[in-house]
Amino acid sequence: MKKWLIGLTYAVFTILIIIPLIKMTTGAFSEGFSGLTNALIRPEALHALMMTGLIVVVVTCINTFFGVMMAIYLVRSDWLSNKVKGFLNSVVDLPYAVSPVIGGLMIVLLMGPESIMGAFFENIGFRVVYAFPGMIIATLFVTFPLMVREVMPVLQEIGSQQEEAASTLGAYRWRTFWKVTWPSIQWAVLYGVVLTVARSLGEFGAVLVVSGNIMNKTQTATTLVYQDVENFNVVAANSVALVLAATSVGLLLLMEWTKKRKGVS
């Protein structure tokens, strides 16, 4: 029975992952290496990849800072009541319960050109929706729980005794964090960073709604793949998707290495 289950697992893995990857790779090289190169050096492809990279960098930095801070507050803040902590935990988990498309629509309704907040930002020359800031907000909405949920269990496991001892000896909060807390959570933070990068890299639904998918302005790599498929530009779609897939494989290997380091520490 066990062998049958293992065989079924390998079969599903092959059908859902290996075969599509092989098909995508052969499709990207169907016109030779020059076809792949031409697809990737298109102005729209270069801009989309650059936009995706910028989103990944900005979202990862913001998510790391506020995610670690939120995790510390939820675990270490004794002055917060259980009801407040429960509410904050629900807010953190909201992206898990809401579709990214719905999340993107919520951002459009709150900060779109026809909303009060959106009109205010438009009047001061700061456009949110259908621009880079809206894409950052949409990706943050989707990825925010990842860092919090990686760091919180580690903080709960290590307890607060060492931090309290450092505070008793006169260490300031920042010194306590860097000398006591950070060494204990650094691998969990790195794992959260890898998850955030991977999720930001592949985000589609929320970004598609918020960005408007405007070529050479608000188009990311995933929305470019979507557009190429709609236009039956299969080679170009496979080429961009292959870059994203190769990056994801590299992130997967990094995640496994981080997981082992996290387990050791």
Rank of each mutant, 00 (worst) to 15 (best):
residue 75 V to E: 12
residue 142 V to A: 06
residue 178 W to T: 15
residue 241 A to R: 02
residue 258 T to K: 00
residue 11 A to F: 15
residue 124 I to E: 07
residue 43 P to H: 07
residue 164 E to K: 13
residue 118 G to P: 05
residue 238 N to S: 13
residue 244 L to A: 07
residue 172 Y to R: 11
residue 47 H to I: 11
residue 254 L to W: 05
residue 10 Y to A: 12
residue 44 E to D: 15
residue 218 T to D: 05
residue 119 A to E: 13
residue 81 S to V: 08
residue 180 V to T: 14
residue 228 D to E: 12
residue 74 L to S: 05
residue 193 V to T: 07
residue 95 P to M: 09
residue 206 A to K: 03
residue 6 I to S: 09
residue 65 F to H: 00
residue 185 I to M: 02
residue 7 G to M: 08
residue 109 L to E: 11
residue 164 E to H: 12
residue 75 V to A: 11
residue 145 P to S: 05
residue 110 L to F: 14
residue 75 V to Y: 04
residue 136 I to M: 04
residue 190 L to G: 09
residue 235 V to W: 04
residue 76 R to Q: 10
residue 211 S to H: 03
residue 207 V to N: 01
residue 203 E to M: 02
residue 26 T to K: 08
residue 250 G to K: 01
residue 262 K to C: 04
residue 30 S to E: 12
residue 9 T to A: 14
residue 50 M to Q: 13
residue 125 G to Q: 11
residue 206 A to G: 06
residue 133 P to F: 11
residue 83 K to L: 14
residue 20 P to W: 09
residue 5 L to H: 03
residue 187 W to Y: 13
residue 64 T to C: 09
residue 86 G to A: 07
residue 16 L to T: 14
residue 153 P to F: 09
residue 12 V to A: 15
residue 187 W to N: 09
residue 68 V to R: 00
residue 149 R to D: 14
residue 168 T to Y: 03
residue 169 L to N: 09
residue 166 A to D: 02
residue 219 Q to E: 15
